[in-house]
Simulated assay, not measured.
Amino acid sequence: MKGLQTAILAAMIIAAPATSQDIAEGERVFQHRCASCHGLDADGNGPMAPVLLLQPTDLTQLQRGNGDDFPLKKVVWRIDGRDPLVSHGSPMPVYGDFFEGSDVTLQTASGEAIMTSQPIADLIAWIQSIQK
């Protein structure tokens, strides 16, 4: 039985898509899709911020606000819409459809695999690169 489990695990690892994240592309996606609310510097001070009921998060502080661990799963799920949100008055619009693309696997610090699209993986790489 142990040999079968090892073979299945090895097949899953081989079948998992390789993750290659492009920080420059992530910044481009951010500037095009996110900066109007989160600001050019991702500090939550975008031009739309004053008219929003809930203020945008300072994306440069995500790691600091989570015990120095980047909250990968929470951020991916918030962007792609898997985090349960109400349709109006939610902390962020659901942008999952805007970020469709090839599926990739990201891995949390605890080793959990998170499936998402390539554009979101690139965006996450850029957000991780700007943590203070």
Rank of each mutant, 00 (worst) to 15 (best):
D43S: 06
D83W: 13
Q63M: 07
T108K: 06
I8K: 08
Q61T: 12
K2G: 15
I23D: 01
A11D: 11
P17F: 01
D69F: 06
A121M: 04
D41N: 14
A42I: 01
N66D: 08
I23K: 09
P119W: 02
G3D: 11
Q55P: 08
L123E: 01
T57M: 13
E100N: 10
D122F: 05
D41W: 05
P84S: 14
L54N: 13
A24T: 11
G101T: 09
C34I: 02
A18C: 05
L53V: 11
S129P: 08
M48R: 15
T60L: 06
D83N: 13
F70P: 04
A11P: 00
Q107Y: 10
D122Y: 04
D80S: 07
M48K: 14
V94R: 05
T6M: 13
G65L: 09
I14A: 08
R28S: 14
N66R: 02
G26S: 06
L4W: 10
S110R: 12
R64W: 05
A49W: 10
I130H: 01
V76E: 01
H32K: 11
L106M: 12
A7E: 11
N66L: 03
E112Y: 00
V51Y: 08
G46F: 10
D80C: 08
A113D: 04
A16Y: 01
K73D: 12
N45I: 03
A109K: 08
E27M: 05
F70N: 05
T19G: 09
S90G: 15
A16D: 03
F99V: 00
